[in-house]
Design a binder for these strands. Structure first.
Lengths: 209, 209
DNA sequence: GTTTGAATGAAACGAACGTATGATTAAATC
DNA sequence: GATTTAATCATACGTTCGTTTCATTCAAAC
């Protein structure tokens, strides 16, 4: 590769460190050191540490959102009434794909997403942007067609359940590292386990009120 | 109530602030101020900020573990072959109960648990203690009896799925606060939705290999 | 009344943090 | 070659952090 510009190296380093130590646990000095840049580079290229984090979050989340949207488009173009399994795969699949494509097995990106979702910092609210809400509303409508009788509230709950399972599942795997059997096989197995698990969960009859 | 001792007030204040702003986002000064104690009180009663966090985590998690264990005991005393739904409720129920009993609707404790589970701080690994692993191994064995044909790895995946759904579900609710409709009704609805969702998920047939 | 020991208080320590500043370099434009 | 502009550099500022120190309080034990 040609020498990447400082801006990209800062994004890479920040993505790495934010995922590993969280937003508050990562100093601007550690980022610039890992990126081989000067301390002031963050301020120059991004304005502040928070805006750098926002840029990192956008770079990670946007391709996932795009893939989720494209998957839904392709699915609905084929049939107006897809199966629950197909919808689950279209929604959860990109979370595995994009995560696994970036780093070794996706555990790092998984951590980053959980950091984005759960960081109590007040700035975190603006990291994701409104695109994610649009995607989820589209899937809400699609699931509502396939799963009639489910109240919108319970459907929201279930869609958030998909997100929870896909985002959290690799956390503890990474925390207590299993001996050698990481990434390729484990990642594919987890993906298929998740589809099975979530398809059955989404297909459950409505909760009696 | 009689004047509670400083140690307890420190635990209460720390639980509050750790849940709201995370471990690194909470300063010892903020804790002692909220507790009405001196800055040095944390060092005197707990030794360090990290040990205070460990004490907070123990106080929150231990009753949940105890309730999970007791629920499983009671269930297995009644019948050696309980239903999946009963097992799910015995496992996930205490997560809702203990959480809802503590604070308003349990969203604060839920945040705290996610903080404990997902905080990338290296000390976080020692916060939970080995009791939690014991509980999960007991439930693993119980689920394995009821769900034959499932590999231990896939079963572990599914049990972690239960944890993910119950822990994460209220995060975003708290982040974008709905108007007034919090705690009592929403908490009970979420609990029943989760049981439905997770029972169906656990009951799914094994993933084809 | 004196002593003892746990508990609290006021203050300071050194370190690490995010950010801002001004000089310096390097390439592009004229 | 002079000028301009983007980028990088070394450095410092002011703040906040967790922790430590030592003096003080106060109730119980002797």
């Amino acid at each position: 590769m040609a020498t990447p510009d400082t801006r990209t190296q800062l994004l890479d380093a920040a993505e790495h460190l934010f995922a590993e130590h969280g937003y508050r646990g990562t100093s601007v000095r550690a980022i610039t050191k890992l990126a081989g840049a000067n301390l002031a580079a963050v301020g120059y290229h991004f304005g502040s540490k928070a805006e750098l984090m926002a840029a990192v979050a956008r770079r990670v989340i946007e391709p996932i959102n795009a893939a989720q949207c494209a998957g839904l488009d392709k699915l609905l173009a084929r049939t107006p009434d897809p199966s629950v399994s197909e919808l689950v795969e279209a929604f959860a699949g990109p979370l595995f794909d994009e995560m696994s494509a970036r780093d070794e097995g996706g555990s790092r990106t998984s951590r980053l997403i959980v950091t984005i979702l759960s960081d109590p910092a007040e700035e975190a609210r603006s990291w994701t942007g409104p695109a994610e809400d649009t995607v989820r509303e589209r899937y809400l409508a699609a699931f509502a067609r396939v799963l009639p009788g489910l109240s919108p509230e319970e459907l929201w709950f279930r869609i958030r359940g998909i997100l929870a399972v896909t985002a959290v599942d690799r956390l503890e795997v990474h925390q207590q590292p299993s001996p050698g059997c990481t990434s390729p096989v484990a990642g594919e197995a987890a993906r298929r386990w998740a589809i099975t698990f979530l398809t059955a969960a989404m297909s459950a009859p409505p909760t009696r009120t």
